[in-house]
Design a protein around this nucleic acid. Structure first.
Lengths: 266, 266
DNA sequence: CGATTGATCTCGCCC
DNA sequence: GGGCGAGGTCAATCG
């Protein structure tokens, strides 16, 4: 139905430039009610309290409120937000008319006072957490709605590496036979479980990229657990599969009689 | 200049609503040259190739280009971007006039044809990676500049937990004496190194939150390494300090003769 | 819900 | 630049 440039009704972007705090607040509240994605850019402070606690003094930042409850506060640097809240929050936006704060401006009339702050608050439970962004100045408010039905198609993951081995077990070792994936042990699920040409049990731990000591520890736990689980006292081989290993990890592998096979996901 | 709240010159937000692809591109290029933070909202596809590779079919998304080279592509769900690129990229924006793509519209004149796509490309090396966002429709382009001098002040971290123990070593155990932090061993640096009332060596691994099997593996590696490093064959005590442990982790602790002390950062 | 683990993890520190 | 570990990690899966 769309030839070239006709706009689908469901896609919308509404923007206020340099709004007063009151009108900014109205636009935000309206956007949240419409389940839109809302962004606010301006000078603000940020306070967080929950799993940890943090404060951030005034500065210009970009704040994104998502309809699923997520919040992101971005500065002009870094991939990660300086502050955030995961999905599942309830967003709230309101103006603070300084009534609660300080009573120093008692000479001001009580009527149409320009509010001192625009506050964005996002709260969730389990765990109890709260993020509060206080704007003293707003340069832009936008609300976006649109449609996105597509899912990301990703390759080069650990899952791809596993599939590669299941499709061609000889890549691991001639005569290897995979018997299960995600096989449960008392130490957790093993990536690939199988046996070698001689019929010995083999535990395979997969990593999509170069590994350090932690991955060896993981493999170690699975091998130990299986040797105990099988209570046959039969030796269990542990093979780490990854593109490469660090020196320290390699030493650990040798120390504990574990093996390494170099393989990449692609 | 505007009423009441005077705007600092350095803070700016410039917005285009429903721009053509050409004018959108100009605004983006201009923003990138001015080292501004640039956002684009519209219908786009996304392709990534690098450590892994991914594709995403057309949908409405919010794209942020940061002056440090970071890119974030956000849908209306999730805290994490659906696609991204870390800081260090070179951004590029240009229009695709369909010349290279398909020659099916050969009847079109070669002159002032409305471009079919606006392309954002962000590339870096080490590792070689490329993110490409192709817009068929742009609902909004914004460029933001501002100032942000402040650093985040965070508490409730592992560092706070360490300080708590150094300030009051008896919290760990009566008679404990810390001797070093980040003490190097052949397995890496130990969080806190010290000795107990009886003069035995103690290795402390700190975690700010409830821990699982991985943390036990870490502590294990440090204890093993120290016992070998000290080559005195003297037994080394390993103590995991965290708010709590999972069942599996607790079993591992017991199995390997390690100890646990419950402590929180705050 | 909690537990476990992967991730294009990112980030910072230190060699 | 690589190694190593923390993170308010997040997100997915499973019991």
């Amino acid at each position: 139905m769309t030839t070239g440039t006709s706009h689908s009704q469901s896609s919308r972007a509404v923007t206020l430039e340099h709004p007063g705090l009151e009108s900014a607040c109205e636009a935000i509240v309206d956007g949240l009610e419409r389940e839109a994605l809302v962004t606010v850019f301006g000078r603000c402070t940020v306070d967080y309290e929950g799993r940890a606690s943090s404060t951030l003094e005034a500065g210009d930042r970009h704040v994104m409120l998502k309809p699923d409850g997520a919040v992101l506060v971005h500065t002009d640097e870094g991939q990660q937000p300086v502050n955030w809240q995961p999905p599942g929050c309830e967003h709230d936006a309101f103006c603070e008319s300084d009534a609660e704060a300080n009573a120093e401006s008692a000479d001001e009339p009580d009527g149409d006072v320009e509010p001192r702050r625009l506050v964005l608050e996002s709260v969730r439970s389990t765990p109890e957490e709260r993020l509060r962004v206080r704007f003293e100045r707003v340069l832009q408010v936008s609300t976006f709605s649109g449609t996105d039905e597509s899912d990301l198609s990703l390759s080069g993951t650990e899952e791809d590496l596993r599939q590669r081995i299941l499709d061609e077990p000889d890549l691991l070792e001639t005569g290897f036979t995979p018997l299960a994936t995600e096989r449960e042990t008392s130490a957790g699920a093993v990536d690939v479980y199988g046996e070698d040409a001689a019929g010995r049990t083999v535990v395979v731990e997969l990593k999509r990229r170069r590994v350090g000591p932690d991955a060896v520890g993981q493999l170690r736990r699975y091998v130990d657990a299986l040797e105990r689980d099988l209570h046959a006292d039969a030796d269990v081989r542990g093979i780490l599969v990854a593109p490469s290993v660090t020196d320290r990890a390699d030493r650990l592998l040798v120390d504990h009689g574990l093996e390494f096979v170099s393989l990449e996901p692609t």
